[in-house]
């Protein structure tokens, strides 16, 4: 189904949005220049920080340059922690990420740069976390997957027994993403909400909507089924949508 690209939909009275398939390997070109997150898009060695910068950084890492390691840790530690938390849970995540850094230290000299540094780091932390999960041999992670978050759009309160909306879906006075992104307070509301998301949802959301990874890659990274990745991403989006609902209604969160 991933390969079926359907006609552009138009849900809108006045707005059109980019609905091109996110299942394609590379994100639409228009996304390239509008994402402020500094670690983005360097899926291959020839984008992001630039091949020269990255090669130089990797060369310094290979020599055991302390400053290069601190720089890479500062840039990527949060992402790696999010992934580790999603797979093994809070208890082991810190430890797993440290193991991953040791592994990076020991192996960076052999890193051939067939992927970006970030992709390589994500793969390492994902593998370390999966190994640890097997070692601990209990289900410590992804338990959020089954729990329905109360207050969520899908918890039933919003719908009548026949499945129709209980109340009208609230109107938004601001529907332009550009305008919404300029609202400082909304930004901090969303940021705070993101940090409070259950770990699996947070990692799935970051990898999908921010890092623009394919669903297939996210399945491998987080070791969950495609269906579960989609559920996780959907729930995260619904939570953020409610933040915007509230912001539109009250001007705060």
């Amino acid at each position: 189904m991933a390969s079926v690209k359907l006609a552009q939909i138009n849900l809108h009275d006045s707005h059109e949005f980019n609905t091109s398939s996110p299942m394609t390997q590379s994100p639409p070109a228009s996304l390239e220049d509008k994402v402020p997150y500094p670690l983005l898009k360097n899926k291959g060695p020839h984008s992001g920080t630039g091949p020269a910068d990255e090669s130089e950084l990797i060369a310094r890492l290979a020599k055991g340059d302390d400053r290069a390691f601190r720089q890479v840790i500062a840039q990527h530690h949060s992402l790696m922690l999010s992934i580790a938390r999603a797979i093994v849970g809070d208890t082991f995540a810190d430890d797993v990420v440290q193991e991953a850094w040791v592994c990076v230290y020991n192996n960076v000299a052999n890193f051939e740069q067939r992927s970006s540094l970030k992709t390589w780091l994500v793969t390492i932390v994902s593998n370390q976390a999966k190994t640890r999960l097997r070692k601990e041999s209990r289900q410590v992670s992804l338990d959020q997957l089954d729990g329905e978050v109360s207050g969520s759009y899908l918890d039933g309160v919003h719908f009548k027994t026949d499945g129709h909306w209980q109340q009208a879906v609230p109107q938004w006075s601001v529907e332009s993403p550009d305008a919404l992104l300029e609202e400082q307070q909304l930004q901090s509301c969303i940021n705070r909400t993101l940090t409070l998301l259950p770990p699996a949802q947070k990692a799935a959301f970051i990898l999908r909507d921010i890092e623009q990874q394919s669903f297939e890659d996210i399945c491998h990274i987080l070791a969950v089924s495609a269906a579960n990745v989609r559920v996780l991403v959907h729930r995260a989006r619904l939570t953020l949508m409610q933040v915007i609902d509230r912001y539109q209604e009250t001007g705060s969160c």
């Binding site: 849900l11 809108h12 707005h15 949005f17 980019n18 609905t19 996304l31 509008k34 994402v35 402020p36 997150y37 840790i73 500062a74 530690h77 949060s78 922690l81 879906v169 938004w172 529907e175 993403p177 919404l180 992104l181 930004q187 901090s188 969303i190 940021n191 993101l194 940090t195 959301f205 970051i206 909507d209 921010i210 623009q212 989006r237 619904l238 953020l240 949508m241 915007i244 609902d245």
Partner: peptide, 21 residues
């Protein structure tokens, strides 16, 4: 669905400010 799409677009372009490691 329109709001969800806006949310996705906003999320995709958010500057994430996590307390840096």
């Amino acid at each position: 669905i329109r709001h969800l799409q806006i949310t996705r677009d906003v999320g995709a372009r958010m500057a994430i400010n996590e307390p840096g490691a």
